[in-house]
Amino acid sequence: MTDPERDLVRHTAALARLELDEAEVDRLAPQFAAILRHFRVLESVEVDDAEPMTGASGVRDVLRADEVRPSLAPDAVLGNAPRSSDGFYVVPKTVGGEE
């Protein structure tokens, strides 16, 4: 098992803010490698002459009018959250994220 695959697992986990221990990295690295092998097959297909696809359905230009409809009741929405207070979702302190 090569190190690049282990690094890829770690990088992907870091992007998703997931903490993995070494045993998990060991288990996931070969699975990642297998998935990427399939994509390498796809990558080998010659597509230079093909138009890039923007969707599989062929549907285009689906728009809606700018009309307001009632939103969900805060209680109903917050009821699905593990923790809430005064109408807010409560999450672990995360200062200085992106955007």
């Binding site: 307001v68 939103s71 805060p74 929405v77 917050l78």
Partner: peptide, 27 residues
């Protein structure tokens, strides 16, 4: 300056009570 959000029909309003303008799409 739209009345509703970009991809759902929730109202756009500054200063509304927290989480009072959300729906399955924008959550």
């Amino acid at each position: 300056a739209t009345n509703s959000k970009l991809f759902c029909s929730c109202e756009v309003r500054f200063g509304a009570p927290p989480n009072s303008l959300t729906c399955p799409v924008c959550t």
